[in-house]
């Protein structure tokens, strides 16, 4: 089965008359998104996420490399009819909500009863059906964001490309959008989700890519990415807290972390001190920790100092 989205060694440089040197937004960027998966696209501001998305939508052309969306080269107008796109800081024409969604549906080739159905279901999906007669100009930021999502959904897309879809939403709306996205995944739709809300991505996405300075730093399933800290947490009891530095006393228990390579040594030390090992668990990072680690590398000595050491 063809991929939903495919970047092949894409580089993008921005040139302007005023700048001497071009700005490199993407460098040899390669990525594949399979059909039916929810893919999280992460990176700090200026990492090149929006550039990558705009390239896929055909808003700009790569300096080198190529890409395909739903098996067609980037920028193919016919393919965009099968795609729903929500831009960051969405901005829509000031019309009645129903008319605005109808306008965007019409641009996607919908008309007649199919358009009416699309408009109705899109507004219902984002819980704006009761506001269908109100002008978009009177909407709050959160409602506008939901309108943006509705215009992306009007054509019942196979692939949804969402740039910060929940950035302006309150927690309740965020949960409903998350449920909506999970519902789309269950329907077999592909979702390409760029977000700063890492907890959101962690809850929704099957795979994640982390981008920084135009380069892809890491890609994989959340399970793979979050399980590889190289540390284990050991909980022991009947042992003095002076045996392991950087340990934490938790009631009668002692809790400390050691590198995986030194766990045997640490366990033997617990036993030799007359203690008993209660549990040994690999330390799972949160996506936030991984994100910060990859995008803001900390000097090695600081990282080493954070892990438990056997004295």
């Amino acid at each position: 089965m063809a991929l939903a989205l495919e970047y092949e060694g894409i580089s993008k440089e921005y040139c302007s008359w005023s700048r001497r040197r071009p700005v490199r937004a993407l460098q040899q960027f390669s990525l594949s998104v399979e059909r039916g998966e929810v893919f999280g696209f992460l990176g700090p501001n200026g990492a090149g996420k929006s550039t990558a998305i705009h390239l896929a939508m055909g808003f700009m052309r790569p300096t080198s490399g190529a890409g395909r969306m739903l098996a067609k080269p980037f920028g193919d107008a016919g393919t965009r009819r099968r795609v729903g796109f929500l831009a960051e800081n969405v901005s829509l024409y000031h019309r009645r909500a129903e008319a605005a969604i109808g306008f965007y549906g019409g641009l996607n080739g919908l008309h007649g009863p199919a358009l009416d159905r699309g408009v109705k279901s899109a507004l219902e999906a984002v819980d704006l059906h009761s506001e269908a007669g109100r002008s978009v100009s009177q909407f709050s930021r959160g409602m506008l964001q939901r309108m943006g999502l509705a215009q992306a959904l009007v054509n019942d897309p196979e692939l949804l490309i969402l740039d910060e879809p929940t950035s302006a939403l309150d927690p309740a709306a965020r949960v409903s959008i998350r449920e909506l996205l999970l519902g789309f995944r269950n329907q077999g739709k592909t979702i390409f989700l760029s977000s700063h809300l890492l907890s959101e991505v962690e809850l929704v996405c099957d795979r994640v890519a982390i981008l920084s300075h135009g380069r892809l730093l890491r890609i994989g399933t959340l399970k793979e990415m979050l399980a590889t800290t190289g540390q284990v947490e050991i909980v022991a009891h009947s042992i003095s807290n002076t045996v392991f530095t950087d340990s934490m006393v938790d009631g009668e228990r002692l809790r400390f972390t050691v590198p995986i390579g030194r766990q045997r040594e640490a366990i033997e030390r617990v036993w030799s001190e007359g203690g008993e090992v209660v549990s040994i668990n690999p330390v799972r990072r949160s996506l936030e920790e991984l994100f910060l680690e990859l995008t803001n590398p900390v000097p090695n000595d600081v990282v080493a100092g954070e892990s438990g050491t056997v004295s």
Partner: peptide
């Protein structure tokens, strides 16, 4: 300037249209 063009050109239309 208003970014409205993104929602328009993300649909199945060409720049020529």
């Amino acid at each position: 300037r208003s970014r409205r063009i993104l929602a328009v050109l993300s649909k199945g239309i060409s720049r020529g249209q």
